[in-house]
Amino acid sequence: MSRIEALIELDNVRKSFGDFEVLKGISMFVQKGEAVCIIGPSGSGKSTILRCINGLFPIDEGFIRVGEHRVHELKSDKAMRALRHQVAMVFQQYNLFPHRTALQNIMMAPIQVLGHDRAEVEERARKLLKKVRLSEKADSYPGQLSGGQQQRVAIARALAMQPEVILFDEVTAALDPETVKDVLFAIRELVEEGLTCILVTHEMKFAREVSQRVCFTDHGLIVESAPPAELFDNPQDPRTREFLGQVL
């Protein structure tokens, strides 16, 4: 795959928290429309990769490009506004704004950050709520919704920014097993529609079904990267084999 065509490009990204080096030289490319899953043991740097891609964490060394934005060169939240318009993120803990209703959560950023027209944004928000099958919860506060419902509102909130890329950070890890499938269903639809997605996940079955490529990370490095059938059925690296042996 060529670097130029890639929508997202990371080259030798390093990141430390204090003395602990979380990322020890991550390089990866993601094509437009591709769904890439990142799997690996806890503490291997999976979530940190996502947070570096949308600039939530500044990196110590290396190069990150998303579309035309050179992320490692952007220094303030203000400078990153265009990047955040292009790259949305969904979090493990949903992180909805507790003082606003589901509908308001979805409408806030497009109106307040992007300056879009309120009426148009409301129409968009209601469509998205319908898409995640929560139309009847428009006026509920996050505190009144179940985890799975909150997470689907969070997905709708991310989509309302009309991003080109969505980063999913272990979005089902905090959910009850029976609500996981609703959230995965919503994500699968987005992948099928051709939205570029990077998913950090522990759902191996889902990773196998939905992604075009799976990256296995261990101790701050991408150990192996391959199409799911290849990586799951015929892992090359012993560390991948050991990890898959434990989780599958």
């Binding site: 949308n54 939530l56 939240d77 955040r84 949305a88 993120m89 704004f97 950023a109 950050v113 920014m161």
Partner: peptide
């Protein structure tokens, strides 16, 4: 994490 969410949505 709520602050992170706000940043990821482009809030300055």
């Amino acid at each position: 994490s709520i602050v992170d969410a706000a940043r990821s949505l482009g809030y300055g």
